[in-house]
Simulated assay, not measured.
Amino acid sequence: MDLKQYQDVWVFIDCFQGHPKDVGYELLGQGRLLAEALKQKCCAVIIGENVDEAIKGATEYGADIIYVVRGEEYANYSADAYGHAFLELCEKYHPNTILIGATANGRDLGSKLAIRLKTGLTADCTALSVEEDTGNVVWERPAFGGNLYARILCSETRPQMGTVRPGAFKKPQKCQNKLSVMIREDIRTKQEDILTKVIDFIKAKDESGIKLEEAEYIVAGGRGLKGAENFTMLKELADLLGGSVGASRAAVDAGWIPQSKQVGQTGKTVTPKVYIACGISGAVQHLAGMTESDTIIAINKDASAPIFEVADYGIVGDVFEMVPAMIKEMRIAKNLEQ
């Protein structure tokens, strides 16, 4: 394989009913850094029916080239249709590197492409870099239960591919007066070749308020909350902050809060402005999902809890005293206290 024929870093912009997911824009920021290190271009790949919003966003977040495939058969994601379109693009343009968000659709698409392109795929990456001497992308991800980080290379085949967890990186600053090259490809997929059909979307019962991975303020609870009923005070504090409630795996496994609220290696990766950890000891698996937060505030009665090692501010105390006190002060600040 002549690796020199493979050029540019591609980022898949995952959309839901025409609305781009933030992870695509997060990856454009990383794609730009990789492309600069490789002296190549950063490109966005958009597949869908109504994709004007995604095209505008890809331009604003710095894509040099935007590959667009439109068609009514792409209105909703399917591995058959999207896989066919993306594969056609790869076989025509030969990308060097492909970044895909580790969403349900992204994981599905990435594995399909890797098999068809006969290349490797590193899943759930949390850090990316480039080896200067080889030009290989270094894909980093938690391994062995989060106790260490693996550095994975794809040195023999191209494209290099990886899925990246939503929230692992922040969205880059928007580019002013950015001009992207638009390449529209007329790739159609026959309806009889699409083996799965989307009938309807049913909103999950716990999906309300601000999404955890998009929240700027997160109040998270762990085993120290002692029961599901005590997450009510965390929600009150989160609401006052304009944020969302999160949880450790211990709280989820205990059935106190839905799995969709779990932060950590087997949950979601978040990067809020403020992360308040209440009664969370700080197991390495949990830390893997929140250490990139701008400010971490830890409340735990155990002064030796590992969470204090990553916290910017630590409160050694009882969460059942500290959180109500914080709520009271917030309500006073907002002139809500009666």
Rank of each mutant, 00 (worst) to 15 (best):
K4F: 02
Y6G: 00
W10D: 03
W10S: 05
D14R: 07
D14M: 05
F16C: 01
V23A: 02
G24P: 11
Y25W: 05
E26Y: 04
L27W: 04
G29S: 14
L33H: 06
L34A: 01
Q40T: 12
I46L: 11
I55Y: 10
I55R: 13
G57F: 00
Y61Q: 04
I66R: 05
G71P: 13
Y74H: 08
A75S: 14
S78K: 12
A79V: 15
A81E: 09
G83Y: 03
E88M: 10
I98R: 00
I100N: 08
I100Y: 04
T103L: 04
A104M: 10
R107T: 04
D108T: 12
I115W: 10
I115G: 14
R116A: 12
K118A: 05
K118C: 04
T119M: 06
L121Q: 07
L121F: 01
D124A: 03
D124P: 05
S129I: 00
F144W: 11
G145L: 05
G145N: 08
G146W: 00
G146P: 02
G146H: 01
L148Y: 10
R151W: 00
R151Y: 01
S155I: 00
P159V: 12
M161A: 10
T163P: 08
R165Q: 06
A168H: 04
F169T: 02
C175K: 14
N177S: 12
E185P: 06
V198S: 09
F201P: 00
E207W: 03
G209F: 07
A215W: 12
I218W: 07
I218H: 05
V219H: 13
M233R: 13
L234S: 08
A238N: 13
A238F: 10
G243I: 08
D253Y: 02
D253F: 00
A254E: 08
A254R: 02
P258V: 08
S260L: 09
V263K: 07
G264D: 07
G264C: 10
A277G: 14
G279R: 08
I280C: 08
G282C: 05
Q285C: 02
G289F: 04
M290C: 13
T291K: 15
E292T: 15
S293I: 06
D294L: 06
T295N: 11
A298G: 09
I299W: 06
I307Y: 06
V310M: 07
A311G: 10
I315S: 08
V316A: 03
V316K: 06
V319E: 05
V319F: 02
F320H: 04
I327Q: 04
Q338P: 14
